[in-house]
């Protein structure tokens, strides 16, 4: 464990917590893409499938973190699609999620480390996570604005994988550890946030709201 990975995971936890708080406090999921949250839930379930296969004692942090990620993302989907369904902006959350899931699944079968079920699921989860934020960014471009709290959520969500890139550089240099698939997907994922990061740094930090077109 290194500082980059630690802060990356903390940033990821913060993002999940910010979104949950936003929906719970405002009792509304306006401006939140349900599809992105569904895709994240699928990512966690397919990536941590080993939790369900051979149950291991929960004492170690990693298992607890995996369970937190899975339960928090499923609970977020429950809030969006059931509890606060009336506030779900289905019209603007219109990016076809199939166009992300099918290519990720296909690519996972073509480019992977080992052709076995668990590894393919892990690879699928990595590829899907790289593009899972697209419906959310698409929704913001359609509505033309993002609530400040949603911007903070996106900043934390984007920073998590950006910090993981620093973690991979660190591990390459000090542990000569390389996970090419995760690195390539992580770089793609972070690049997708660049436009948003620019808006966040230039606007939200100054207390302004993000309104598109910038």
């Amino acid at each position: 464990m290194n500082i980059f990975r630690l802060f990356g995971d903390l940033s990821h936890l913060a993002a999940i917590a910010i979104l949950l708080l936003k929906i719970w406090k405002t009792r509304s999921c306006a401006g939140v893409s349900g599809k992105t949250q569904l895709l994240f839930a699928v990512c966690f379930i397919t990536r941590y499938i080993d939790l369900f296969l051979h149950f291991v004692s929960l004492y170690n942090t990693e298992k607890v973190m995996k369970l937190i990620y899975i339960s928090a993302s499923v609970f977020t989907c429950y809030l969006i699609f059931f509890k606060f369904k009336a506030t779900y902006d289905g019209n603007h959350d219109s990016m076809r999620a199939e166009f992300l899931i099918v290519p990720a699944a296909g690519l996972a079968c073509l480019i992977n480390t080992k052709f076995d079920a668990i590894e393919i699921l892990w690879t699928f989860s990595i590829y899907l996570e790289a593009v899972a934020i697209l419906p959310q960014l698409f929704l913001i471009s359609k509505t033309g604005e993002a609530e400040t709290i949603t911007s903070h959520y996106l900043f934390a969500q984007g920073s998590y994988r950006a910090l993981y890139i620093l973690n991979w550089i660190y591990r390459y240099h000090y542990e000569s550890h390389v996970d090419t698939i995760a690195i390539v997907a992580g770089v793609v994922q972070t690049i997708l946030y660049c436009d948003f990061f620019y808006l966040y740094i230039t606007k939200v930090v100054k207390g302004q709201k993000i309104v598109l077109p910038a």
């Binding site: 990975r5 995971d9 990821h12 995996k66 480390t113 080992k114 993981y164 973690n167 996970d179 995760a182």
Partner: peptide, 10 residues
């Protein structure tokens, strides 16, 4: 080759 390519990250 038994590559212990366990993915040890979240």
């Amino acid at each position: 080759e038994g590559n212990s390519n366990q993915h040890d990250e979240l």
